[in-house]
Computed example of a mutant assay.
Amino acid sequence: MAESTVWWLLAAAMVALELFTGTFYLLMLSIGLAAGALAAHLGLSETAQLVVAAVVGASAVVLCHLFKRRRRGDPSVRSLRSVNLDIGETLQVDHWLADGTAQVRYRGAQWTVVLAPGQPAEPGTFRINELVGSRLQVERA
């Protein structure tokens, strides 16, 4: 069996393993294995193939890690919105109950709405700022 075939089989096995585990780092290592296969196609020695595979794979892992770390940060309304698409949406409250809640129709269903602390219980347009259990916490829009 040709050396390049072994590299390609290892790369395919690494991709399959990545599909089972869901870690992006194994995919980066498979890129290194594919680079080793390309080095074998170029006729480089076994040592050179190993070095190419190790350098490319390690570089891809480091770049992936740096990219992930750079994007991480404190949650903000924008990042919360990517998790819960209701945050930031507006709705109309016609009247408030004595306990500071209201019943509204939102997205085709009946929802209980609660006021954010410090907000007046007056009818009007409100913006969803948090989902608390099955209740929508709102503030004045």
Rank of each mutant, 00 (worst) to 15 (best):
V93E: 04
L85F: 14
G88L: 00
V93C: 10
L80S: 11
D74Q: 11
G57M: 01
L80R: 15
V77C: 08
S82N: 10
S79W: 04
V61P: 01
V93G: 14
L91F: 05
R70V: 12
L91R: 06
L85K: 12
A60D: 00
L63M: 14
R71D: 09
G73I: 08
V61E: 03
V62K: 03
S82R: 14
D86L: 14
H65G: 03
V61K: 00
L66I: 14
R72L: 14
L85I: 11
G57P: 03
G73C: 13
S79P: 08
R81W: 07
D86G: 00
R78D: 15
G88A: 03
I87D: 11
R72Q: 15
G88Y: 01
K68L: 08
A58I: 01
S76K: 02
D86F: 11
S59E: 00
L66W: 12
Q92C: 08
V77P: 06
R78G: 14
G88W: 04
G73M: 13
N84Y: 08
G88V: 01
V61A: 04
R72S: 15
V77R: 08
T90K: 03
Q92D: 06
D86E: 06
P75M: 08
D86T: 09
R78L: 15
V83C: 06
D86R: 08
L91M: 08
L91S: 08
V83L: 15
L80I: 07
C64N: 13
G88M: 05
C64M: 15
D74G: 10
